[in-house]
């Protein structure tokens, strides 16, 4: 295979990683019945504070580079978890609307990030380095695409399988799904709905924070204003819907978005050639593509279009296909559960 193409595919996998981690985190949160709408803000705040922590450690010379990175990641995860917990708390204890609080936090966290990040604009800091996995990276095709990345990328693969395994193959995962689908039933069976919702909201938030660190310590190193990851939080939220709250499809969606973006930015820098003919076109407009894709994917999952298409499929594959394309949200998503 063309080494240049392999390179591009590899870089798509790399740049998609924050989206992968953030949307997997949100999947966990939403599976528990809580919407963390603040993604676009919490990603940014986690990114800047994670970077600031790592950079400060570097300047102070207190830790070696992996230590600085670890510190940055820990801070970012803490930030993400705290914001998510605030949404959980306001919903569970104070009975506020999750969407309202989440939206306010989106704006607040983004502004806070700009305010606190003002002194960290455009300065170099520690970065996560590549680490090719010995045997796997030599595999043809798959090796260069998936196994010459950094540890965060490998973590995202593991995370995908772990979440899938937990959700669909363990008792704990069954409870998790139950508190998002039928909290009353789960409660009657002895699940501590509120406490579990706190835990899963915090876990999902921590993953969103990790995704923030994946931007500022790797994909878009450092900090700039306006932030490089602006808008990605919303895309991650849409990917969760597109992915039907299923980890594999969510990851697929994240790669799809990243690929589309890579293609459009590639065309914008190099121009577009079809059969050696340069096509002239206002390439700025290609920036609309991820958002058009977002609308189209939401349209497809919510308009019943898939169901209509399924009618044309042979009966034999219909059931399996429907199971794969199923995209119903957790039934209790965004709905408060009050014990009394």
């Amino acid at each position: 295979m063309n080494p240049e193409l392999l390179n591009t595919l590899g870089s798509i996998v790399g740049t998609a990683t924050p989206l992968v981690i953030a949307s997997l985190g949100e999947t966990v949160t939403e599976r528990a019945g809580v919407v963390n709408l603040s993604l676009d803000g919490s990603l940014t705040l986690a990114a800047v504070l994670g970077f600031a922590a790592a950079w400060t450690a570097q300047e102070a010379g207190v830790l070696d580079v992996p230590g600085q990175i670890a510190l940055g990641i820990a801070v970012a995860m803490l930030v993400g978890a705290l914001i998510a917990l605030l949404i959980g708390f306001s919903s569970i204890k104070l009975r506020r609307d999750q969407v309202a609080v989440g939206f306010v936090l989106t704006l607040l966290a983004a502004d806070l990030a700009r305010f606190l990040g003002a002194n960290f604009t455009r300065i170099p800091g520690p970065q996560i380095t590549r680490y090719a996995i010995p045997v796997l990276s030599d595999l043809p095709v798959i090796g260069p695409i998936f196994f010459r990345q950094n540890l965060l990328v490998y973590f995202s693969y593991a995370l995908m399988f772990a979440i899938w395994y937990w959700l669909f193959r363990t008792g704990g995962g069954l409870t998790l799904r139950a508190i998002g689908e039928r909290p009353e039933a789960a409660y009657a069976r002895g699940a501590r709905v509120q406490r579990l919702r706190y835990w899963y909201t915090a876990l999902g938030g921590a993953l969103v924070g990790l995704a923030g660190a994946a931007y500022s310590l790797n994909v878009k190193p450092g900090w700039s204003s306006p932030p490089a990851m602006q808008g990605d939080g919303w895309i991650a939220l849409a990917i969760v819907i597109f992915g039907g709250w299923h980890p594999f499809r969510v990851v697929l969606g994240a790669y799809l978005f990243a690929a589309l973006r890579a293609v459009s930015s590639n065309i914008q820098t190099n121009g577009l050639f079809i059969f050696g003919q340069e096509i002239s076109f206002p390439f700025v407009l290609l920036n609309t593509l991820p958002w058009l894709l977002m609308i189209v994917t939401l349209l497809v999952v919510s308009s019943g279009l898939t169901e209509r298409l399924l009618q044309y499929m042979p009966r034999a594959v219909r059931r399996r296909l429907r199971a794969f394309l199923r995209s119903d949200p957790p039934k209790a998503l965004g709905i408060r559960f009050d014990i009394d």
């Binding site: 009975r95 506020r96 936090l105 700009r114």
Partner: peptide, 27 residues
């Protein structure tokens, strides 16, 4: 020499705390 985003921070904090305290009051 502060970033003007402080305005957004103040406004966001205000709305957030007002919403949270409404909840506290109703509880």
């Amino acid at each position: 020499k502060l970033d003007s985003s402080l305005a957004g921070v103040m406004q966001g904090m205000l709305v957030l705390f007002v919403i949270l305290f409404q909840g506290l009051r109703e509880t």
